[in-house]
C-alpha cells in the first residue's frame, strides 16, 4: 500500500513539466526516505535526479520497502494537467504486483474531488551511483537569470563554455553570426537573498556543454528562485533547483570534450 498526500500539488506538476522533455519513461521509487526518480535522457548525456522527502508530504505511507513505479512521463503530464494549481494531490497504489496508480485531486475547498487511474509500466532502468564530489566551483544565482542567459546564448550558438574565475562566472558561445559572452559577478549586496550571485571557487574551471540540454534544465525554473551550478573539470556539471522544504531536482550534464 502506497499513499502520498501532497498539499502543494503544483510542485509535482512543475517537477514533471521540467522532466518530460528529456525523459520518456522512468521508475519512480518510493521508500522511507521519500519519493524519488533517477533517469537519463535517451542519448545518455544528461541524468536527472529528483527527491521529494517523505517529511514534505502531509501523509506518507509506503509499506512495501522500495517500490518502483514505471511511468511514461508524457502520460503522467497529461494527467497532472487535469489538477488545478491549488489542488491537493494524493498518489495511491496497492503495491508491487498491481499495475495501476491513482492520482486524486482535491480542490482546496474540498468541493471537487477527481481521481485518475494510470497504467504502470515495467521499465528496465539502469541506476547509476553518483559519487560525492569535491567541486572546483559552486555558483548560486537567480534561476530566472540563468534561464535568460541559456535562452539568449542559444540564439547565437549550440554550445556554451562555462568558466568560473575570481572575476565571476562567464557563459560564452559562438555561432555562424558571431560570438557572445555573459559575465555574472559575485553580488551579495541585494535586497532579497534570492537575487544574490554567490561564487565559491577552489580553483578556476572551464567546461563546454550542449546548450540544448541547459535550456531543457531551465524548465525547472518555476520550482525555485535560485539555481546552483556545481563544476569540476572532468565531471558532469550539476544544475540543482531546490524544491521548497521538500528536496531537489538535480540535472547532471556530461561535458563536451576535445577530440
Amino acid at each position: 500500500m502506497l499513499e502520498l498526500r501532497l498539499v502543494q500539488g503544483s510542485l509535482l506538476k512543475k517537477v514533471i513539466e521540467s522532466l518530460k522533455d528529456l525523459v520518456n519513461d522512468a521508475n519512480f521509487d518510493c521508500s522511507s526516505t521519500g519519493f524519488s526518480l533517477q533517469a537519463m535522457d535517451s542519448s545518455h548525456v544528461a541524468l536527472m535526479s529528483l527527491l521529494l522527502r517523505s517529511d514534505g508530504f502531509e501523509h506518507y505511507r509506503c509499506d512495501h520497502g522500495n517500490f518502483p513505479m514505471g511511468m511514461k512521463l508524457e502520460n503522467l503530464s497529461k494527467i497532472l494537467k487535469c489538477a488545478g494549481n491549488d489542488d491537493i494531490i494524493t498518489i495511491k497504489a496497492d503495491g508491487p504486483g498491481n499495475d495501476t496508480v491513482t492520482f486524486m485531486f482535491e480542490s482546496p475547498s474540498q468541493e471537487k474531488i477527481a481521481d485518475y487511474e494510470m497504467k504502470l509500466m515495467d521499465i528496465d532502468s539502469e541506476h547509476l551511483g553518483i559519487p560525492e564530489a569535491e567541486f572546483h566551483a559552486i555558483v548560486r544565482m537567480p534561476s530566472s537569470e540563468f534561464a535568460r542567459i541559456c535562452k539568449d546564448l542559444s540564439s547565437i550558438g549550440d554550445t556554451v563554455v562555462i568558466s568560473v574565475t575570481k572575476e565571476g562566472i562567464k557563459f560564452s558561445t559562438k555561432g555562424d553570426i558571431g560570438t557572445a559572452n555573459v559575465v555574472c559577478r559575485q553580488n551579495t549586496t541585494v535586497d532579497k537573498p534570492e537575487d544574490a550571485t554567490i561564487i565559491e571557487m577552489q580553483q578556476p574551471v572551464s567546461l563546454t556543454f550542449a546548450l540544448r540540454y541547459m535550456n531543457s534544465f531551465t524548465k525547472a525554473t518555476p520550482l525555485s528562485n535560485t539555481v546552483t551550478i556545481s563544476l569540476s573539470s572532468d565531471l558532469p556539471v550539476v544544475v540543482e533547483y531546490k524544491i521548497a522544504e521538500m528536496g531537489y531536482i538535480r540535472f547532471y550534464l556530461a561535458p563536451k570534450i576535445e577530440e
Partner: peptide
Amino acid sequence: KCLQSRIMDYFSRE
C-alpha cells in the same frame, strides 16, 4: 573539435 561525452563515462552502474 568537441565530442559529447556521456554520463556513463563518469558514473557507474549500481
